Computed example of a mutant assay.
Amino acid sequence: MTAERLVRASDLKRQRGWTDGLIGSLLGAPDALSPNPHGWRAPMRWFRWDRVADAERAPAFAARTAELPEGAAWRRGLPTRTWAADEVEGLEWLDDPARMALFLVPRRPRTRLRRTAAPEPEHVVLYPLAPFEVLRLF
């Protein structure tokens, strides 16, 4: 497997116009995983370049690229960096990505909390009347 070229999922999204949904539906599970060098984050997902090229010829991907805005479409013409398997540190090949099931969790949209004026209390008691005695030391 050393002759195969690999591409990261983040490069697919940034350079090739992919989305997480397209990656999950057209590519499925990654071919390999590696530790993320940017701290305690999810492992980096690696896909074989031949699988990516086959998926980019699919009609679903062609419809997606037709919808890309002008600012993102120009990146598709640029070369995408690929790595050989021996160039990636800590690469762990998955057994059979075609037989793995992916469960994509959609992101919840961020909602803003609306600030409302607090209702005015009818009667504010700073020191509630409690049964206590004052102890005089002098």
Rank of each mutant, 00 (worst) to 15 (best):
D54N: 09
L26V: 11
Q15F: 06
P121M: 08
V125E: 12
P43Y: 00
A29E: 07
A101G: 10
R16L: 09
W83A: 08
G71H: 11
T19R: 04
A42E: 11
E92F: 04
R64D: 04
G77M: 05
A117I: 08
D54P: 03
I23E: 01
P128E: 14
T80Y: 00
V88D: 03
E122N: 13
L68D: 03
V105R: 15
F138K: 15
M44G: 06
P128T: 12
R81A: 13
W40Q: 15
W18H: 05
F138R: 15
D95F: 01
P59F: 08
P131Q: 09
E122Q: 13
W18C: 08
P35S: 10
S34A: 15
E70C: 02
L129H: 14
R136E: 14
G71K: 13
G90V: 09
L33F: 09
T82Y: 01
A72P: 00
L33W: 05
H38W: 12
G24I: 07
E67F: 02
S34P: 07
T116F: 05
A32Y: 01
R48Q: 07
E122F: 12
A58V: 07
L129S: 12
R115Y: 01
E70A: 13
W49E: 11
M1D: 09
A63F: 02
R5K: 15
E87A: 14
A72G: 02
R48L: 13
P43V: 08
S34V: 10
R16W: 00
A66L: 08
M44A: 10
G39S: 03
R108A: 15
W46A: 04
P119V: 06
G77D: 11
G17L: 01
L94I: 12
E120G: 02
P69F: 02
L94H: 04
A58K: 14
T111S: 12
